[in-house]
Amino acid sequence: MSVPLSILDLAPVSAGSTPQQALRNTVELAQRAEEWGYHRYWLAEHHFVAVASSSSITLIGLVAAATSRIRVGSAAVQVGHHTSASIVEAFGTIDALYPGRLDLGLGRSGHRRAQFGSEPSHPKVGRPVVDTVTGRTRIVDGVVVPPPFEPGRIVDRTKFLASVHALQQQGAQPPEFSDQVDEVLALLDGTYTTPDGVALHAVPGEGAQVQVWLFGSSGGASAQVAGSLGLPFAANYHVSPGTSLEAVEAYRAAFRPSRYLSEPYVVVSADVVVAPDDATARHRASTYGHWVHSIRSGAGAVEYIDPDTATPLTADQRRLVDDRLATQFVGSPATVVERLSALRRVTGADELLVTSVTHDHEQRLESHRLLADAWGLSSAKAA
């Protein structure tokens, strides 16, 4: 039996459109995803770029209101930009009205100012899944595993660092990621006390029926904390394909049974564009490289451009994004199902999380619908 499929959405803004329309598109896609049998609908948090999911928790509430069964959540809240109390109170507010449907995903993105402001470095733990002699891309049982992308290759970090500064109060320093995860869990459980020993209770928030997830791209802190606490874990293959297998391995190695889970539970993400045939899918996905290049050049995600009018990337531009192009799942339903099945097999994923970005919203809807049909979600839902 195939594993469940879920959707990750950034509410991308297409060239010639508006953030307002992107948000309407997100709500429509969530409603269709529920009809088509997807298991979860997760929203990503990004700031000062051409995606409309910057206030992801607000959007989660709107999507929950517009749907009735599908689980809705964050992928992920950038905890370095939020206090633990604000996160729990916000999710508690939504859960009060739509109980038992929320996934509270936590990620380290807001903690990475030092990483992007310094020389590139490899993860301190775990081993990269890469040919260390040649540095070349490997194929692992049908899954493309490129060399890890070094943050130091980002051309201009000025905007990123300015964004981090704008998202934090002057002089504020986020706590260690593991400490903040502990705070969130304690606030949900009603066991939180300040360093001075004062008990505080989140209202709403305490006792909320939310499932806490951790997200990670390598075998570092996120994977190890998720494993040690016995929480479910999401590995970001669509962002960091060179280190995601390492992340899954590190999570499973660190896993300890808990009141949350008796055994590891892993979701692995993939960037997908499905169309009726391979050639059409390749055309619809042909400006994905331009989008990734805008991120890695330092400009951040720009409006998603139309493949009918776009000029090809230069050789230098392609070199900066080759790993992401090689690991995008593009093609007919049969082609994409075959590749996703390989990813599930190699990672042992309990669930797959797909994200699809196209310039045309109707084509994005079609991509998710075709995949749902080919994966058997409709028949599984009926059963």
Rank of each mutant, 00 (worst) to 15 (best):
T26P: 08
T327M: 04
T93M: 06
E303L: 05
R259N: 09
A285R: 02
A90I: 07
D95R: 08
R69C: 01
L5M: 05
E246G: 15
E89K: 05
V336R: 03
L229S: 07
K124V: 15
Y98L: 02
A372P: 13
S86E: 04
R252I: 14
S53H: 07
D182V: 12
V198M: 09
A166S: 12
D156S: 04
L188N: 11
V72W: 00
Q211K: 05
V143H: 00
E183A: 06
R339P: 15
V248R: 04
G171V: 14
H238F: 09
L352V: 14
Q180E: 14
R344F: 02
V144H: 00
T280N: 02
G110M: 12
D271Q: 11
I70Q: 03
P276F: 04
S56E: 11
Q317N: 14
A275Q: 09
S2V: 12
G100S: 10
L340I: 14
E249L: 06
D271S: 13
S109T: 10
A90G: 11
Q209P: 02
G216W: 03
I87A: 09
S294L: 13
G207Q: 07
Y288M: 15
S286T: 08
V272P: 01
E351N: 15
H290Y: 01
I139L: 06
E351F: 08
S244T: 15
G105A: 09
I305S: 12
R108Q: 13
V125D: 10
F160E: 13
A33W: 01
G73K: 06
W36D: 10
S86N: 01
Q180H: 11
V357C: 06
A30I: 00
Y251F: 10
L102V: 11
P175W: 02
A186F: 01
A275T: 10
E119V: 14
V77G: 07
P120H: 02
V155C: 01
A199P: 15
R40Q: 06
A374C: 08
D277C: 11
T355W: 00
A44K: 08
A235C: 00
E183P: 01
A253S: 11
P148W: 03
F329Y: 10
Q211S: 11
V330G: 07
